[in-house]
């Protein structure tokens, strides 16, 4: 009886929470280190004061400057291009790094690893469990948010205003803390109330246009959860753990696909972490098409190993 050593698996959730908090703190630390007060409570005088813009990093999630280089939220860029019916070439330069990053990694990595609303809702989850409120697991129409993203863009063009920036709950957290902005506050409270009393992640799974935008480019991502069909014991632990929508694991678990292909996957790692047999793991590279050609794909995957996750390396060692 040889029980493979499995204790040394990557705690993806903790790693992810670390990144979420770090990013939140990054935006908080800059105004503070410039001597400013958060929530827009600072008061100016007759003398010039140091500003966050003097530092290497400043801004909000809509636009950040790192070492003098501007970054721009690509979805906001689309909104203003349509609202103003103009286009400045440097917008493209500012938005491209962010767009290409999520395109190459995985669209909704933003939702899982960066978005402060998700962090807040995960805290709400924990809170709800503590209070003992039961909410039903409801199936959400997860493609609706792509439609909402499209609708936001059309409305932005019609109303000549970047519409989502009025309501964005992401702004409500990020800019509320940094600047004291009230934009999006009502929607944020509504999202938390619905999360607490009605169903899991109605906003993130079905409604958020930023999530919809990233879902639309999600399938192109190179960070994918793959499945070892021989190791899978169909315990459904992964589906219960899935942060975005249990449905997206279905093709992989049922054996019809080699991994999680849906654009919805935010590579949060919850399923990888919870899998008792290590059947699920992160792999870098395109997801092999369907299970049929699996044996060919496996060799090609091991040759592209260098950036493969620690998780799979540990697993490989366990096997030898």
């Amino acid at each position: 009886m040889s029980t493979p050593v499995r204790q040394k698996r990557v705690r993806w959730s903790w790693l992810r929470h670390g990144v979420q908090v770090l990013i939140l703190l990054l935006f908080v630390v800059t105004p503070l280190s410039a001597g400013w007060t958060l929530l827009g409570l600072g008061i100016g005088g007759d003398e010039m004061q140091a500003t966050p813009s003097d530092l290497v990093f400043y801004g909000t999630l809509s636009s950040t400057t790192i070492a003098g280089f501007n970054l721009l939220d690509p979805f906001a860029m689309l909104e203003i291009a349509l609202a103003s019916k103009t286009f400045y070439l440097d917008w493209l330069l500012f938005a491209a790094p962010i767009f290409v990053f999520y395109l190459l990694v995985r669209g909704r990595v933003f939702c899982g690893w960066v978005c402060p609303v998700n962090l807040l809702l995960e805290i709400t989850d924990a809170l709800r469990r503590k209070i003992g409120i039961i909410v039903e697991e409801r199936v959400m129409p997860r493609r609706v948010k792509i439609g909402i993203a499209a609708a936001v863009l059309v409305l932005s063009a019609v109303l000549a205003v970047p519409v989502f920036e009025i309501f964005s709950p992401i702004s409500a957290v990020n800019k509320g803390i940094v600047l004291g902005s009230a934009a999006g506050a009502v929607l944020l409270v509504a999202i938390i109330v619905v999360e607490l009393f009605w169903a899991h992640r109605v906003w993130c799974r079905a409604l958020c246009p930023v999530g919809g935008f990233y879902e639309a480019i999600g399938r192109a991502g190179l960070v994918n959860v793959t499945i070892d069909h021989e190791a899978c014991i169909h315990c459904n632990a992964c589906e219960k753990a899935c942060l975005c929508d249990p449905q997206i694991l279905e093709p992989a678990v049922s054996g019809s696909d080699s991994g999680v292909r849906a654009g919805d996957c935010m590579a949060c790692g919850a399923c990888v972490e919870v899998c008792p047999t290590g059947a699920l793991s992160f792999k870098l590279g395109c997801l092999p098409h369907r299970a049929a050609g699996e044996s060919h794909q496996r060799t090609s995957e091991t040759t592209v190993d260098p950036v493969a996750t620690i998780d799979s390396i540990i697993e490989e060692r366990g096997r030898v």
Binding site: I43, T51, P52, S62, S63, K175, S181
Partner: peptide, 13 residues
């Protein structure tokens, strides 16, 4: 887009 960078660069707040 309400990014607030103008606010964060005003030396007189």
């Amino acid at each position: 887009i309400k990014c607030g960078k103008c606010m964060e660069s005003c030396p007189y707040l």
